[in-house]
């Protein structure tokens, strides 16, 4: 939005405030902590009421919860329905062609999604296990982006002046970077043993760092805008005139009001980061084999797209469903917390 528009909206309502209730709720924010908790609940209650009515968003939320449960209980699920994700089943492979015997890449009750060409690994199990890396990196990187982005966004928006200029320029620089190339390069030059970590732990940590670090400006920009508008609000002026210091205003006045947008954009950033992780794995940067990741599976499936389509469909659809679910939930959350965004 242009600067003008932001100014207008700032004087009317904070963008994510709930119209109607805003007038009576915000002044209370300057009072004691107990009452603020009540206000938070009421805002949350209203949002929850709205969200509950949004069946699509609820469906997205349920799928998200199921996916998280699937990632956590992967070993259990696989023990009941599939085979260990790294176990070879070459008895399922035609030795001459190196592709699966049977229909559609060996789909059967025993192997729900069929098997991988060459080695016969159970695609269902690998997809279930792949959720672990995707969701871990998706959440971890988002958390990092949100922490960095909120810090710099608030600092830039609250202090303004040259601080704002510097931070804004830095964010511009980040946005002009070919992120994928940088992330690939950086992930590639870090040695196998670093920061006291090794193996998959280190690789996942690197992925979280690289993705989270390169994506913070997206959060930073939004938070800066929100802070700019909140700064001009009456309750901040009121607090200031009562002699509150910057630190107090930041902690007690601004941050609580930023929780809603942070929540919304974090939910929307998770799928972006999951896609980012998949893209990096697709390009060959990721955890070491044989650990399953969706992007890595897709990358291995490229030469087989014509002879074993199930190999690419299984991880591809897994990414699609996951990202879609997070997007639905994020959209719903945004609508619930900010009816204007409709």
């Amino acid at each position: 939005m242009t600067g003008l528009e932001q100014g207008v909206s700032a004087t009317l309502t904070a963008p994510l405030d709930v119209t109607g209730t805003a007038g009576e709720v915000t002044p209370e924010a300057t009072l004691s902590g107990a009452e603020r908790a009540i206000q938070g609940r009421s805002l949350g209650q209203i949002a929850w009421m709205r969200l509950r009515r949004d069946r699509v968003a609820i469906a997205g939320g349920i799928v998200v919860i199921l996916l998280i449960l699937m990632a956590i209980f992967a070993p259990l699920i696989v023990r009941v329905i599939g085979h260990p994700p790294n176990e070879w089943h070459q008895e399922m492979i035609d030795p001459t062609l190196s592709t699966a015997k049977g229909v559609f890449g060996g789909v059967s009750l025993d192997f729900l999604f069929g098997v991988e060409p060459l080695n016969g690994r159970d695609l269902f199990s690998r997809v279930v296990y792949g959720a672990r890396v995707s969701i871990l990196v998706g959440f971890g990187a988002t958390l990092l982006s949100v922490v960095i982005g909120t810090f710099f966004g608030v600092v830039a928006g609250f202090f303004g002046g040259w601080v704002d200029s510097v931070i804004s320029r830095v964010m511009d620089v980040f946005l002009a970077f070919p992120l994928l190339l940088f992330a690939m390069s950086l992930a590639g030059v870090i040695p196998d043993n670093a920061f006291g970590l090794t193996g998959d732990g280190l690789r996942i940590a690197i992925l979280i760092f690289v993705i989270g670090f390169f994506n913070w400006p997206y959060v930073g920009r939004i938070i800066r805008g929100q802070t700019l508008s909140l700064r001009e609000r009456e309750f901040v002026d009121a607090a200031r005139s009562l002699g509150a210091r910057n630190g107090y205003i930041l902690r007690k006045e601004l941050l609580p009001n930023l929780v809603a947008p942070i929540l919304v954009y974090a939910t929307l950033l998770i799928p972006t980061n999951i896609l980012f992780e998949a893209a990096l794995a697709f390009l060959g940067v990721g955890v070491a084999p044989p650990t399953a990741t969706w992007g890595g599976m897709l990358s291995s499936a490229v030469p087989f797209y014509s002879v074993a389509p199930n190999f690419m469909l299984a991880p591809g659809l897994a990414i699609f469903v996951t990202v879609l679910a997070f997007n639905l939930l994020g959209d719903g959350l945004r609508d619930a917390l900010d009816p204007r965004a409709r």
């Binding site: 070879w88 062609l97 190196s98 080695n119």
Partner: peptide, 13 residues
């Protein structure tokens, strides 16, 4: 070695 050969592309590999 049979497993490795199959993964390497079978007898034509």
């Amino acid at each position: 070695k049979v497993a490795i050969q199959t993964a390497w592309g079978g007898p034509t590999g």
